[in-house]
């Protein structure tokens, strides 16, 4: 586990990966990363999104799926 993450951070990574997994399988003209990012905007607080976005830039980001990483970039 990365030195920068705590229990809450690990949960964010896990949750983002779960969400991305769902949208990876959907039909969407906008693509799974955009759908994932939309979901995060609709359900996560700004603080959670900011933490997640920052996490995606650290070693912890390696534990994110490709879709989840792309979604983090779209949150900027």
């Amino acid at each position: 586990m990365s030195e920068a993450t705590d229990h809450g951070d690990e949960r964010l990574i896990q949750m983002a990966n779960q969400i991305a997994t769902f949208f990876r399988g959907q039909r969407s003209a906008r693509g799974p990363a955009a759908e994932t990012a939309d979901h995060l905007k609709a359900f996560w607080t700004p603080d959670m999104r900011n933490t997640f976005r920052a996490l995606a830039e650290t070693e912890a980001g390696a534990r994110l799926s490709e879709v989840a990483r792309d979604a983090a970039r779209l949150l900027r």
């Binding site: 705590d6 229990h7 809450g8 949960r11 609709a42 359900f43 996560w44 607080t45 700004p46 603080d47 959670m48």
Partner: peptide, 18 residues
Amino acid sequence: AEPGLRIPNMLDEAVSGR
């Protein structure tokens, strides 16, 4: 205009001191 914390998020944030 932004969503708030859900119960599990509240507890996670509490453990994190926020």
